[in-house]
């Protein structure tokens, strides 16, 4: 894919919605296209997080090794969404596995390239951080909701009359 084509398809990704032209170009210079076959891993827990992914199609699931409880699936991520922010935060290692439930097409963004750009261009850095903060906030909110176990009947004792 030519850089122009890559820029054009990146522009369509919701994560980069309304990103200005020059910043989009900066990002394109760190991006490439990748494909993961169904049943393969995008990355594993503990590996160095050198990349993050903007999913274009297909779905991946985030898993945590739960020791005696086996692999626990926490969340699925699909087209239009982002996987990975461990590249942003020390010690820059993945905290979970990402497994392709279907064939996954994604943009891979090279983290060391991106960090360099972020540090040399504060405007770009701010824009990336702002967008990642939004993703983080949404994930945190979702995690809280899951934690509440809203569909559970664990309140049965208090509702025993019914």
């Amino acid at each position: 894919m030519k850089p122009q084509d890559l820029t054009e398809s990146l522009r369509k990704h919701p994560f980069l919605n309304n990103l200005s032209e020059d910043l989009l170009k900066t990002l394109t210079s760190c991006a490439s296209n990748v494909v993961f076959d169904e049943g393969t891993y995008l990355f594993h827990e503990g590996e160095d997080a050198k990349i993050f992914y903007l999913l274009r199609s297909g779905r991946a699931v985030l898993e945590i090794a739960g020791g005696e409880r086996g692999q626990i699936r926490i969340q699925t991520v699909g087209a239009g969404e982002v996987i990975g922010w461990s590249w942003l935060i020390s010690p820059y290692r993945w905290h979970f596995d990402a497994f392709a439930l279907e064939q996954v097409h994604a943009f891979a963004i090279d983290a060391s390239c991106l960090i360099t750009k972020c540090e040399t261009d504060c405007r770009f850095g701010y824009e990336m951080l702002r967008r990642f903060s939004e993703v983080l906030e949404r994930r945190l909110e979702a995690t809280r909701l899951q934690l509440l176990d809203v569909y559970g009947s664990n309140l049965g004792e208090r509702g025993e009359n019914y």
């Binding site: 919701p14 779905r59 699931v61 692999q71 699936r73 926490i74 969340q75 699925t76 699909g78 087209a79 239009g80 969404e81 439930l101 949404r138 909110e141 979702a142 909701l145 899951q146 176990d149 569909y151």
Partner: peptide
């Protein structure tokens, strides 16, 4: 459809219902 907790036999979405609006 999404579920809060899935296992490896579940091929559908995992996550809260608000997350489905992305799709």
């Amino acid at each position: 459809v999404t579920v809060d907790r899935g296992d490896s036999s579940w091929k559908g979405h995992i996550g809260v219902v608000t997350g489905l609006f992305s799709y």
